[in-house]
Structures are given as structure tokens and as C-alpha cells.
Design a protein around this nucleic acid. Structure first.
Lengths: 221, 221
DNA sequence: ACCTGAACACCGTTCAAGT
DNA sequence: ACCTGAACACCGTTCAAGT
């Protein structure tokens, strides 16, 4: 099919670039989001993208922010007892990341941009405030909740995806924990099973509960 | 200086490769650790390195493990009340990462390999056990402590290093938080200052205290 | 058997030169 | 003024061919 047979190449806009980037990530994974591949989808050269985004990091942040639109912040999802509401919001966030494991790996390193990220923070601040948490503590607690959720999604997502290289890294860890000499590392040898145990969601859920209990009991310095 | 003037090229070994990689990271930062650059330092082609390491991820894990040798696990550092001992071990770990900020960014994504990492886990398990924490909880708590310490070191390290691109990303976050419209995001607008506040060590220290308080009060599922 | 030159298949980003 | 072809300066990894 030649250039002439297709509809006229649409003018580029920042929104269009980011929408196409989001589609690319959805279809092929975040690992395939590169300036060159994105440019190809948009039928231009990579240089043209720099008119709309500063660099790859900014592009990733925007795509991440786009995905956060799927986090459920509706009142129905956030009804009930406050700890449960925090839990459901964080679970929804985790779910979005786990649905696209490569995305979680981006999120550990890149802060999302855009309104959905702000809305997520806002919702958590509101619920924590309604739970009676002092403002200064609530702010840092939101930070910690998202940090923990992101990191454990990245870890669990990696384990599920198993794309060869990461499977190897995983096996290496398990092997070095399980193979640790009991004379030099007695506690580790005894607890290797526990260290490696837990489905991602169980562990992540426990982490979130722990953060809420800890935050309630730890005044800010 | 020609090839003949230098001492004979030493035979490669895995240890030598990793030692040179560690020196490279110490001198130029983890961002400069590439197969090609490492090969250049070792006076070979990149292909030769694949005899000693599986791939870049394994190399990074090994270098990370090497750096963990600087974490202070001596009895003197781990004396006193148990929460303080945990705190000092984690602080020492954080200190190592903050001394080489680019390293912290590697650590969020890569598990260290080697004996120093095992020794770190062992020490934490021992202290938590002596503090009376049940085994199953202690295992997951160690995980969470290292996860939190690593992630906050990466964030704070990035802020300090300010290498242009990351400064931009930082500014973008601060700007979007501070510029959030107060009508749509009232809590966020009120707490933007708090969200961005805190020197890395203050925040990381609070996180660690919180995890210990939370772990003490949250039974495993 | 061990090692590696050269190639393959990619990257991000810049900037001079075009329209 | 806006856009982009082509170039610059890199990557990781593989494998056929050498010693």
C-alpha cells in the first residue's frame, strides 16, 4: 500500500503523539517505547517528536499518566471505612501496573505526569485526612504508599512476565537465597522460604496495611 | 604509549572483570557501565566479556553486591536497643547508595548478588528476631525495609545529583504539584509543600521507623 | 577449547538545511 | 516559522572464524 492510498497523514499534536505512544505501550509493552519506533508509527522521523516532547523521560511520564486514568477513584470505590478505602485505591493503582508489567518497571523510576496522577494523590490525601491523619503525616504517607505499591508491582510483574533475562535474574536470587550456607547465614537459611514466599497481591496488601498502621503510630520528626 | 610498553595484558577472570566494573562505576558512575566501555578498560572487545558474565543485568547485580561490602554490619554498629540497630544498619545501606547516586537507580531495578547482600539480609533477620518479631513477619519486613530504603535513596540521590535531565523531571513534578488548581485538587494544593518537603535522610528515617512500628502491629495474612 | 573481530540490529539527540 | 534527513555518538548481543 503506497502513501497515496492511505488517508492524509494527520497533523501531529502533543496529544496525538502521547496517544499513539500509549497505544504502542498497550500493544507491545513499555520496553518497545522508543523515539524511533514511535516516529515510525506516526510516519515521521524521530527528530520531529522533539517538537512535542522534551525527551524520552518526559514521554514516559506522560504515558504513565495516561494509564493512571484507569485507576478507580469513583465514590463507590472509595466508600466505607477509611483504611479499606485506601486499600481499594492502592489496589486499583497496583492493578493498572500489573496489567502492563513493563509499565511498573517504568514507574519505579519515572513519576507520572498529568491530571490522573494529581487526582490519585488528591484522593489518597482526602481519605487519609478523613481518617484523622495529621496533614504532614498524610503527605509523606501518600508518598510511601505509592512508592511501596509501585515497587512491589514492579517486582511481582517481573516475576509473572518472565521474559527470559528476568527469569534468569529471578532464579539467581532464589538460588543464592536457598543455597546460602547455613553456617554463615543461619537465619537466612532458615527463612529463605519465607523470604521468597507470598503471591504479589498478598505481600503488597500486607505492605499497605503495615504502612497505615505504622503511619498512625509514628509522628513526623 | 604502545601496547609493548605496558605490562603484559593480564588474563581475564570473572573477579577481575567485576573489580574493573566496580572501579568504573566508582569513577564514572553507574550510567557509564556498559559492556563496550568495560571491554575498553580491559583492553578487549565486548564479546569477550560474555565468557565471564551472562549479560549486563548480571554484571550490574555483581557490582551492586561489591559495593554492599561497605555496609557496616560490625557488632559495634549493631549494638544497643533493637530498633536503633535496625535503623543504623539501614542507614549504612542508604549511605552507600547515596555516596553513588547513580547506583541507587540501578538498585531499584536490580537485586544485588554476592555474599555482602546475603550478610545484610542475615543481619537484619537476626536483629528483628532478637527484637521478638515472628519469623514470617521478619522475612517480609526485611524485604520492605530494603525496598523502601532503596527507593528513597534513588529519589533523594537523583535530587542531589541534578544531572540536567533529572533536574528537569524534578522541576516538572514540583511545578505540577505546586501549580495544581486548588478548586479541583484542594487537599493537594494545601499540602504541596508537605509533599515536597523533607531532606532525604529525614524522610527515609521516618519511613524506617514507620515500617518497624507497622510490622510490630500487623500480623501476616 | 577458548577467545574475539566484525556484524547485526538497534538506541537518543542534534542541527544544518530545506519548505 | 516550522519541520526533518542525515549524521553523530553511542548501545547489547551473537556467531563465524580464527588461534
Amino acid at each position: 500500500m503506497s502513501r497515496r492510498d492511505r488517508p492524509a497523514k494527520p497533523a501531529l499534536t502533543r496529544e496525538g503523539v502521547i496517544a499513539t505512544a500509549t497505544a504502542l505501550v498497550r500493544e507491545e509493552g513499555a520496553g518497545r517505547l522508543t523515539m524511533r519506533r514511535l516516529a515510525q508509527r506516526l510516519d515521521t522521523g524521530p527528530a520531529s517528536l522533539y517538537v512535542y516532547v522534551r525527551d524520552t523521560a518526559e514521554l514516559q511520564a506522560a504515558v504513565l499518566g495516561e494509564f493512571l486514568g484507569a485507576v478507580d477513584l469513583t465514590p463507590a470505590a472509595t466508600a466505607g471505612e477509611w483504611t479499606g478505602r485506601v486499600r481499594r485505591i492502592v489496589d486499583s493503582y497496583t492493578g493498572v501496573l500489573l496489567a502492563h508489567p513493563s509499565l511498573a518497571r517504568v514507574a519505579v523510576v519515572t513519576r507520572p505526569s498529568g491530571p490522573h496522577y494529581l487526582a490519585l494523590i488528591e484522593s489518597l490525601l482526602v481519605v487519609l485526612g478523613e481518617g484523622g491523619m495529621p496533614d504532614d503525616r498524610a503527605a509523606w504517607t501518600v508518598d510511601l504508599l505509592l512508592l511501596v505499591a509501585t515497587a512491589s508491582a514492579a517486582e511481582h510483574g517481573t516475576r509473572r512476565e518472565e521474559d527470559g533475562a528476568e527469569e534468569a535474574a529471578d532464579d539467581a536470587l532464589a538460588e543464592s537465597l536457598r543455597g546460602a550456607p547455613a553456617d554463615r547465614y543461619p537465619r537466612l537459611a532458615a527463612l529463605a522460604g519465607e523470604l521468597l514466599s507470598g503471591e504479589g497481591p498478598d505481600r503488597a496488601g500486607w505492605f499497605v496495611d503495615l504502612v497505615l498502621v505504622g503511619a498512625a503510630g509514628t509522628p513526623r520528626p
